[in-house]
Amino acid sequence: MSTEDTGSLDDRLHRLGIAYDVQRIVATGIGMLPLSETTKESLTSRSATAVVVVGETGVALVKGAAEAGRGAATAAKDGAETFQRTRHAHASPSADAPAPPVEDVTTRLERLSALHRDGHLDDAEYAAAKAKVLAGS
């Protein structure tokens, strides 16, 4: 097992840099879902694992490219450095960014119904979320 495969999930996320930011954004989105806290924690944990695996796979690919030829590794490194320099400029939404589309009540109710039917919401969670939608929240 390589060094990247060891350590806590949080340590691995921090070691990968951008993976930590990606997971933070994913966790924020999961936190907004009309789900139980247990379900949100489970989804957050699973998504963190997926982000780490993808990040570590990318690192392994770059290392393999470095062994195959320095040109590919240099290009990958230069691209990563450029991305790191520019990502903070794009971190906050622009005032010119369009507002996300507003879903109509029917669409929101259909989405909630599907979540309930698929077992992602229990009866109480579904009833509470449905009441919010019908109340206009």
Results as ranks from 00 to 15, higher is better:
Ser2Tyr: 02
Ser2Glu: 08
Asp5Leu: 12
Asp5Gly: 03
Thr6Lys: 15
Thr6Asp: 08
Ser8Asp: 12
Leu9Asn: 09
Asp11Glu: 15
Leu13Gly: 07
Leu13Arg: 09
Arg15Pro: 04
Ile18Asp: 09
Ala19Trp: 02
Ala19Ser: 11
Arg24Cys: 01
Val26Ile: 14
Ala27Lys: 11
Ile30Cys: 07
Gly31Asp: 15
Met32Trp: 05
Ser36Arg: 08
Thr39Asn: 04
Ser42Arg: 10
Leu43Arg: 15
Thr44Val: 12
Thr44Trp: 01
Thr44Asn: 09
Arg46Val: 09
Val51Met: 11
Val52Trp: 00
Gly55Pro: 05
Ala60Ser: 04
Val62Pro: 00
Val62Ile: 10
Lys63Pro: 00
Lys63Asp: 04
Gly69Arg: 07
Gly71Leu: 08
Ala76Ile: 11
Lys77Gly: 07
Asp78Glu: 15
Glu81Cys: 04
Glu81Asn: 14
Glu81Trp: 03
Thr82Gly: 12
Thr82Met: 11
Gln84Cys: 02
Gln84Thr: 12
Gln84Phe: 10
Thr86Val: 13
Arg87Asn: 10
Pro93Val: 06
Pro93Phe: 02
Ala97Arg: 12
Pro98Ile: 04
Pro98Gln: 08
Asp104Asn: 15
Thr106Gln: 14
Thr107Lys: 11
Glu110Ile: 09
Leu112Lys: 06
Ala114Val: 07
His116Thr: 02
Asp123Phe: 03
Ala124Arg: 15
Tyr126Asp: 04
Tyr126Asn: 05
Ala131Leu: 09
Val133Ile: 14
Leu134Val: 04
